[in-house]
Design a protein around this nucleic acid. Sequence first.
DNA 1: ATGAAAGCGCTAACAT
DNA 2: ATGTTAGCGCTTTCAT
Lengths: 311, 311
Amino acid sequence: MTASRVMNGRGGASEETRARVLAAAASLAYRPNTFAKGLKGDRSYTIGIVVPDIGNPFFPEVIKGAELAARARGFTLLTCNVVEDPEREAEVLATLLDRRVDGVIVCSARLEDKRLQQAIEPHRAAVLINRPMPRRVAGTIEIDFRTGLAEATRRLIARGRRRIAYIGGPPTSYSGRMRRAGILDALAEHGLELVAEEATTPDLEGGVDAARRLAGSGTTVDAVICYNDLIAIGALSVLRDAGLAVPGDIALLGCDDILAARLVNPPLSTIHVAKQDLGDAAMRMLIDRIEGRSLQHSIVIEPELVERGTT
Amino acid sequence: MTASRVMNGRGGASEETRARVLAAAASLAYRPNTFAKGLKGDRSYTIGIVVPDIGNPFFPEVIKGAELAARARGFTLLTCNVVEDPEREAEVLATLLDRRVDGVIVCSARLEDKRLQQAIEPHRAAVLINRPMPRRVAGTIEIDFRTGLAEATRRLIARGRRRIAYIGGPPTSYSGRMRRAGILDALAEHGLELVAEEATTPDLEGGVDAARRLAGSGTTVDAVICYNDLIAIGALSVLRDAGLAVPGDIALLGCDDILAARLVNPPLSTIHVAKQDLGDAAMRMLIDRIEGRSLQHSIVIEPELVERGTT
DNA sequence: ATGAAAGCGCTAACAT
DNA sequence: ATGTTAGCGCTTTCAT
């Protein structure tokens, strides 16, 4: 017991005893056993973070932000990759529960509402990124894509674009629906509608496929808005191969502002999201919830249009 | 005890008892306590993976490969980001030990040999990616950058390049030293030497800085080989801004073959590394070591030159 | 200031 | 086929 007190800096031990304990610990290369600590105590100082695909450059940045914030407060991160599969998401959330994590952050959850709520409720605390949820169940950090995309679409219209197409991402993505809604909002203000629409996987190949389908459909289009930058970059290569000028013939807009966006030619116009800040904010909110001070339930981050060479 | 037997599928329980236990477990939403399991047993079915920077697109791919392999065998991954700091690396390896992971994979370790060995030895099993180590201490997966870069340099020389510069990465990177050695090997075969050399951080900004220093030094150069693609892409933008033609005036070669490499303009010639395979191979080797069947100690993967538009 | 007892949830070893 | 005992390493509670 005395040793325990000394090792945890609880005081209540004479200076001499303290020194002896510390010396013994050092000579034995003592390290506390996390399992024993966790078995008794009700805290594991571990947090789970779930992302749809770590291979998508958006998420490592979020993880990085979250990890830095976690570490600063003495928490370790358990990163779980779901590979875009809702089943895996449920599975992973259960595993995290078994591991007695103190809380979970779920990025862009792919599970439908009811099952998501079921998977999350048993957790002591949770924060969702880009997905609404009753405050009792989870805190939320939302990027206001609806406003962001409405704004961007208005800009496109102001530049004379009328025949706008949308290439969407996973059907289960809440933020994807918001992006689409924002576009429709702006379009409606001008009595316009989407002239074409495709849905695809949120990666380069998905962009290539969708752009090909779009080109094959014969619909004339003067702007394409994409669910994310990866899709936009894939589409860009198809447009270029088809001999279309970007932005001369067709304007192109991505979303996320990943590293590659400014490297392609022409550099991709996109909607910038502060990815590390997102992870940082989520982690702070989660730790607040874990520690019982639930200051705020919902944070909304405004994304920012970055016009580069494709609009 | 009977419940334990049923839950672990150990048999030795009547069909009727089994059903009752399972029913009770379901109605209680029973989930085993990982800490209690871990406290008793000597296995946690958790593996730690340490990377220098999760923000560098190379590593998420490795993690993805490792995670897929781990999950297939019932292990969970603990991902740790070191942000290029050797101290953090030692710290993280100790934390992983506290968490009683069954083993660790360390990617491109930044710690110097002695401390690295000390940090790794107490672990039950370890595999290092791109760093040699005595077989008793850790298994290794190595990409043969020396041969790869020698080959690539020979190709550059064959194309008439003579004034070759190298922009290196972190001084503590073993694989960086191998890359450099490969270049020197090929150069020496033709009685050549490096005409200039810079070292920098392995990211876009590092590439920009180093290329500026190179340009400012006044040395004429007709080819630049870079530690990785990120540096090469940063350098590319500087060269372009300086009005230099790539590859007309200067050839440029990266390393890793990250996604962005084929997206820049002109597309970057680079040395392709099978990143997911790397993670997969490391995880298999680690699990073999954990389970006592240490089939092989060292795997060498040959990288492959991909010539695109910058050479 | 120090220590003894008990228990967290699980399983290996040993009965019955 | 089923149950009992004990102990993994730690901390909380209650003495001394």
